[in-house]
Amino acid sequence: MKIFISTGEVSGDLQGALLVAALKRHAVAAGFELEITALGGRRMAEAGATILGDTVGIGSMGIIESVPYIWPTIKVQQKAKQYLKKFRPDVVVLIDYLTPNLGIGSYIRRCLPGLPVLWYIAPQEWVWSISPRNTDLIVSIADRILAIFPEEACYYQKKGAQVSWVGHPLVDRMQSAPCREVARQTLGIGPEQVSIALIPASRRQELKYLMPVMFEAAQILQAKLPQVHFWIPLSQSVFRSKIETAIADYGLRATLLENQSLEILAAADFAIAKSGTVNLELALLDVPQVVAYRVSLITAIIARHVLKFSIPFMSPPNLVQMKPIVPELLQDDATVENIVFHALELLQNADRRQEILAGYRQMRESLGDVGVCDRAAAEIIKNVKLNTAS
């Protein structure tokens, strides 16, 4: 069986790796040969996929921010189309990654009719769709959507898609996370240390627009709380020098580590995090957090005043329940003062911390049971068999 998977960015590589591992388990159990080729990154390669193109660094959030990635996106789409035409797989699995995967999916529908396409983790049009065009395209491309959020499943079903809700793959990932005590021991964190996880960037633009305000807030917290130490998981190796320079410039007591993100998150007393998958990881580890996000001023003005762009929430924990479980500070609200205020509140106010933890417990009920990736893998294999039989 030949499977082609297309995804991008740090989070896509993580979700893709979990899926590749599950598909490999199913192949071994059923006794069939499995060949997986993918657009992805290091994690997917380590899980057993052959990487056609590295897409971890090709991604952005915003209008102006996307410009540098137009040509890299076109190139990776061309490479995928050439591969699909020459080595037609049994099924294509698209994971999130809206713009590149719309291009690849549209090509399949035009030029490779009959090739099954499943969209695992559909783009969040159900949260921030500006027009129905992208939603209609997703529905027309995907033979089946494997949804990870209940709201996502409902949205795409109402739009006419065939949908299976499988649950959120981070439920599976957290099974391998260390407990707080083990994580702190692994990192050498003493009982007196207040450990704050700083998660400034998984995209290059976030180093420019988000890291400075986050590090300035950390600088103030460090002055107020002498027992604080900051721990920063490195999402991409190419970010190391810029983050190390910023740590020195702001005089932070901070440790930057690569390939130890789960240990850092599990050991934390609190986190200041960019919006993204990491928010859900922190929630599943019961770590209180404040979420911040900023884009360029031009993007913000266009989104707000021209596109009339508005979203109920941005971080996954709040999206799961559609209510404010964790504080979100977006654009103009993502100030040093606001980050410091919420950080001190969540570090020093036991009642407020308990409110967050209670929200996390309620949120977990909407994420599905363990075995998410195996359920997704089973759906993919089932669709291949059905297509072959017909």
Rank of each mutant, 00 (worst) to 15 (best):
S164L: 05
R184Y: 03
V28D: 10
R173Y: 10
A267W: 00
E46W: 06
I5C: 07
L207S: 12
T186A: 08
R110S: 05
A45P: 09
A29I: 09
L146G: 04
R352W: 00
G160K: 00
G53H: 11
I298N: 13
S315F: 08
T37M: 13
L346R: 04
S106F: 06
D351E: 08
S131C: 13
E35V: 15
I199E: 03
E328P: 02
M314P: 14
S6N: 11
L319E: 10
I356T: 00
S176Y: 14
V67I: 09
Y69G: 07
S60W: 02
L94N: 12
A377P: 10
A122G: 14
V182Y: 08
L367M: 05
I380W: 10
Q162K: 06
S140C: 06
A268H: 06
R353Q: 09
Y156N: 12
I311A: 15
A292T: 15
K242C: 12
G41W: 05
F341H: 13
L112M: 14
V290K: 01
W119I: 00
K2R: 15
R361L: 05
M314A: 15
L23K: 00
G40E: 04
G160L: 02
L347Q: 03
S202K: 01
E65D: 14
K274S: 13
F215E: 11
N349E: 06
G48K: 04
P233G: 07
L262I: 05
A218L: 04
F230K: 01
A80D: 11
P233W: 10
F313E: 04
E258R: 14
W126A: 12
L285E: 01
T335H: 02
A47F: 11
I130Q: 12
A21R: 13
V278Q: 01
D136P: 10
A248V: 09
D90Q: 13
T135H: 06
P317L: 02
E33L: 14
Y209L: 10
E263Q: 15
